[in-house]
Design a protein around this nucleic acid. Structure first.
Lengths: 285, 285
DNA sequence: GCTCATTATGTAGTAAATTTACAAATATTC
DNA sequence: GAATATTTGTAAATTTACTACATAATGAGC
């Protein structure tokens, strides 16, 4: 992938270094980029008022092998530009608009997070979870639900897993920790006092502290390993929406990482857990 | 924007409805999408082992005017960087591949869900939640965490919200329900016996039953309103990954819907709730 | 201001790629 | 098992893109 992030910007920038007919082509493309991706070399040449080979030369000047290749690059750069805009729900929205907006925001958050995945921290966290004798998932508010979800995933690895929403329980468990215990803190801001305090207490023991939170936050400072999640939560919104989705997928990643660590021989164990649910369900007719 | 957000997902989904040679073309494209955008109709036909017109027909089947137009759409959908559809994690994967796969799967699930959003059911559910005097969110296993998350959202609307993971509590609460009570059941399969039974019990009262589950499932049959979520969970995977993400976003949508219903005058109330958390956090330096 | 060299642009032909029309092959129905 | 519908391929037509070359424009040196 050698293609420029934004072809239109490149064209714009070089506009005055182009000779007459190339400039005409550039102008025609800048005027109607989407249309340019769909038109033939002949129609674009006509639109710009130049000959076809001029268009072709223009394309080669911008690194393309020819006109079709140029169109491809143009289409690609147009597509990636539009995507990353999260739109807030407004009171003027109706049923046809706001659900789509929320889904778009969620998708954007995951796409953004995917691009800046802290792989090193993730790998390290997988190591530490795989080695732990006991794992505690602690979160409050929305993150409590995330912790609960994590509990439902990680118990499968033959390691005792605990969650507690009660800050007092969290403190006490943190205080009584020892070697092999792993505390996994989940917090979007990383500034929730009672949670940070619990982390502080745990840190004074032999336990390992891993956190899924914002880099540079008080909670991150208390951790041996911090998985930094960059999610720009819409501050106008009164409900945290997207950050917890990213957290959940990160936890999926960690769970998958531990599974891979356990190796292929571990699948029968997972299969057994899955099968245990069979009788709790109505069979498909 | 008339172009599909994710052409590959669409192709993948329709794979078994295609005839032989079209399926071959589909496979060739899914195997090497980037290459397909760069190749001519002849080389793609050769790669798929079919004739050129077959490739052309394939393109038209997916809404393109022809092969070049199809390539354009494909390039556009690839530009987002989201790779294949539902690629299972394999034991040969390493830290550089499996996290991306999981994120892609999550993104794809949300994109697919977004395309087939049951807006009518959502609107109806918003109505019913907005009118309810009391709301119970019930789910088990992974869905229990989703229910918990919902609780953290919906209490903001001045309506008493309850969650219980205990099936016995769920039964008893269902039995003692009356007018104005709303039971919101969350279940990916819609076949979990104890949950369906609770729904059945609730249905015998004056309460309203809303469910977020699979259409046509026993749970859906017991509901006044069923929000159908089509998520093809990878059955080889031992952990439910993507369905709960879609459920969470749907619940966000419902919460947003209720907020819009309450109207602009409701924002101070939400602001007050948000402000109440201020003192629980360490201030940003 | 003229000539030569250089660069820029267009014309026309050619090659390649795409599409259409039609025929053969395959599957489906009664 | 014949008749019909569907699928697939062949070959020709058409569109599209590229190359080679010619002409026009520009600019430098005298």
């Amino acid at each position: 992938m050698t293609s420029e992030p934004n072809l239109l910007a490149v064209i714009q920038r070089q506009l005055n270094e182009l000779n007459k007919s190339e400039a005409k082509v550039a102008q025609a493309i800048l005027n109607a980029p989407e249309e340019a991706t769909r038109s033939s070399i002949a129609s674009l040449a006509a639109a710009a008022g130049v000959s076809e080979p001029s268009v072709n030369r223009f394309c080669k000047r911008f690194g393309a092998t020819g006109f079709p290749d140029f169109k491809l690059q143009l289409a690609t750069s147009l597509a990636s530009g539009v995507r990353y805009v999260s739109r807030a729900v407004e009171f003027s929205d109706d049923i046809n608009t706001f659900p789509t907006k929320l889904f778009d925001n969620a998708i954007n958050a995951l796409m953004t997070a995917k691009e800046e995945l802290p792989l090193k921290a993730i790998a390290r966290a997988v190591d530490q979870i795989a080695q732990a004798r006991r794992v505690y998932f602690f979160g409050l508010g929305t993150s409590a639900a995330v912790a609960r979800d994590a509990e439902h995933k990680f118990f499968r690895f033959n390691v005792p897993v605990f969650t507690h929403e009660d800050p007092l329980m969290q403190r006490m468990l943190a205080a009584s920790a020892g070697v092999g215990d792993l505390f996994f803190f989940i917090s979007h801001t990383g500034r929730t006092k009672v949670l940070v305090e619990a982390a502080e207490i745990a840190r004074q023991t032999e336990a390992t502290i891993v956190s899924l939170t914002a880099e540079g936050s008080p909670l991150a400072d208390k951790s041996h390993c911090c998985i930094n999640v960059k999610v720009e939560e819409d501050t106008e919104q009164y409900l945290p929406m997207t950050s917890r989705l990213v957290q959940l997928v990160i936890l999926d990643v960690l769970a998958a990482g531990v599974t891979l660590r356990r190796g292929e021989g571990f699948t029968p164990h997972l299969a057994r857990i899955k099968d245990s649910l069979k009788d709790t369900r109505f069979q498909t007719s």
